[in-house]
């Protein structure tokens, strides 16, 4: 049981780091630093909605920390925004859990909007350099929409990754009885 738990944990962590690499190194080149495609926040939303508590919370914390570490600003800002996002997803998943594509996009849109607000507020409160004026409002909306469109695909990829090792017969538990 622990073995499966650890296996899933490491696997998601590795793919999370890969997503972080894509987000911090590849995607900014495509969007010229104007729009931030946040794959890690999408992953945190997935962890909040679909992953069990202990690995979900720890993975969210680690990934949010590393996202903060590579962000160039105070690492705690992203960590705090990420953990806030996780907490909302985690506590609301008992009431609703978006299963279809449009539902996931809608929730992602709201959650990314929320995370953007948290980020800007945290930056404003803890650093205070008028971050609200850095990005025009239409860029913010475009960024949130883009992230909301991409997020369901990230969910789908991680749903697949979760069962990745189960496809290898040697790792399957022997049937008993």
């Amino acid at each position: 049981m622990i073995r499966i738990w650890l296996r899933d944990f490491i696997l998601i962590l590795l793919f999370g780091f890969f997503a972080l690499f894509l987000q911090s190194a590849i995607l900014p080149m495509m969007f010229k630093d104007k729009l931030e495609i946040n794959l890690i926040f999408a992953l945190i939303i997935w962890l909040g909605f679909f992953k069990s508590t202990v690995p979900g919370a720890i993975l969210s914390f680690i990934l949010a920390y590393f996202l903060g570490a590579v962000s160039g600003t105070l690492s705690g800002v992203y960590m705090f925004a990420g953990m806030s996002l996780y907490l909302i997803c985690f506590f609301s998943r008992a009431s609703f859990s978006p299963r279809n594509l449009s539902g996931q996009m809608l929730f992602s849109f709201l959650l990314f909007g929320f995370s953007k607000l948290i980020l800007l507020l945290a930056l404003e409160l803890f650093i205070g350099r008028n971050y609200f004026r850095v990005q025009p409002i239409y860029y913010i909306l475009l960024e949130i929409t883009l992230n909301a469109i991409i997020a369901p695909f990230i969910f789908k990829i991680f749903h697949k990754i979760k069962g990745f090792f189960d496809l290898i017969p040697e790792l399957l538990e022997p049937r008993r009885g």
């Binding site: 800002v77 705090f80 953990m83």
Partner: peptide, 9 residues
Amino acid sequence: SLVLLSVQS
């Protein structure tokens, strides 16, 4: 995370 952010700030 909030505490860490405060300390960092």
